[in-house]
Design a binder for these strands. Structure first.
Lengths: 236, 236
DNA sequence: CTGCAATTGCGTAGTTAGTACACAAAGTTA
DNA sequence: TAACTTTGTGTACTAACTACGCAATTGCAG
């Protein structure tokens, strides 16, 4: 096979099929003990009334991660957020307008930190458990991101990104139960987090609860970052 | 925002930037106690002498997974193989011929089962540990797939796909040590696999070794599939 | 055919992580 | 002040992982 010059490579690349590329963001939040996803109503008439992920085309010279952060920023104003590439979806018929490849990114954010511009296509938080029949293959994408999240949250204490700054152990447990879809033993759950040693006792108590109030904690992000480096060293 | 008809969606999609899309296959093998990767010499003169992954453009109406299997089949003849999507790489300047997005797929295969057509661009197995300075961003892709493999092999006993049908526990341990880059306690390693109960004792012994020969085992694939279903139930 | 080198095969004790489970104290509400 | 809800805590059992040493088998060199 002959070697190709840069110019020849350019023209070679030009002859290959090209496809439009999008990024879709699956943004999980947590409120009222329920796992939520940030969605809009679809633009497309054939998907009238159906829910759709926040997505957009990737620009010509835009890095993929940058595109995901841009979309998140444009829609929510949020900038300091984890955002992870989860999977590519590329079935030839997944988009009614022709072939479009999409890259799913997943993110967790604290609902309290963000006020949404609700007027844009009914952008809002929707219960994950109640989702059905979304536009495109978006239900499948959300489900794959949910599985990814279930796995992820057992390896890293990512849940804190979904909670308010100060939270009770009850809220933390509710979050884990909502994401994992199981119920957990309260004493063992508390013991486990106590042994991780990543919570700071604020010496404050819950307010406005109609029962014995619990202590409020904060997540020790700096300690977590240190531990994470160790874990990665041991190939986590 | 107005709703769009299907026709309007088509023309909308048509206005968005398009990019060529490739699949690159990172195919790991194992031989002589070393982890190997299947690579070719790059076609491109600017990458003269450098190693490159097996890759190709995705066809117009080809599913992404199908493209990966096609490439693997075309290059190695192999069909019954695990093949997993690992990650998308899309930096705007990663390809000298212009923007090209690539999807990395990872696969493990048994070197003994395949004879290679060595003449095509020096297609061959190369030591993973000795790799450096590959074409494009392929070194980064291989490294990400290697991390993926390290993680994966601790969750599922995938290693068997890299070994001959019959293997000694020593070979199995060498494989794990090569992939994980650590040394393991021989007794604990054996105990662990014994407790998994996935090995079949063939009652044969190693031949041609210059020391006490070990027993040869086979992997119990059907039992593994059953177990896997259970694990998945418990959300593994 | 003997001794050396390499490697197999095996078991126990200690530690750590996870699970199951019950009761008293704090606050709210009627 | 009684009933209700929820917090906060400890122990015993089990499962998984770690560290570690010795006798037996084979090939090979002298």
């Amino acid at each position: 096979m002959k070697k190709n010059s840069v110019k020849a490579v350019h023209s070679l690349v030009d002859t290959y099929p090209k496809v439009p590329l999008t990024v879709d963001c699956v943004i999980f939040g947590f409120e009222e003990s329920k796992l939520k996803v940030l969605l809009i109503k679809s633009d497309l008439s054939i998907y009238q009334g159906k829910l759709s992920l926040l997505g957009d085309f990737v620009k010509n010279n835009e890095d993929l991660d940058d595109a995901a952060y841009r979309i998140l920023r444009e829609r929510t104003g949020m900038t300091n957020v984890f955002l992870d590439q989860v999977k590519v979806f590329g079935k030839p018929d997944r988009h009614p307008g022709g072939r479009v490849i999409t890259i799913a990114y997943c993110s967790l954010l604290n609902i309290q930190h963000h006020s949404l511009n609700i007027h844009e296509n009914e952008l809002d938080w929707y219960d994950y458990d109640a989702l059905e029949d979304m536009a495109f293959d978006h239900k499948q994408i959300v489900d794959e991101c949910h599985s990814w999240l279930q796995k992820r949250i057992q390896e890293h204490p990512l849940g804190f990104n979904l909670l308010p700054d100060k939270f009770s152990l009850r809220e933390l447990q509710n979050l884990y139960e909502a994401i994992l879809g199981v119920s957990l033993d309260r004493r063992n759950f508390r013991k486990k987090f106590a042994s991780m040693d990543l919570l700071i006792d604020t010496n404050e108590m819950e307010q406005d609860v109609s029962h014995r109030p619990g202590k409020l904690y904060q997540f020790n992000f700096t300690k977590y970052e240190k531990k994470k480096r160790k874990w990665i060293g041991i190939d986590f």
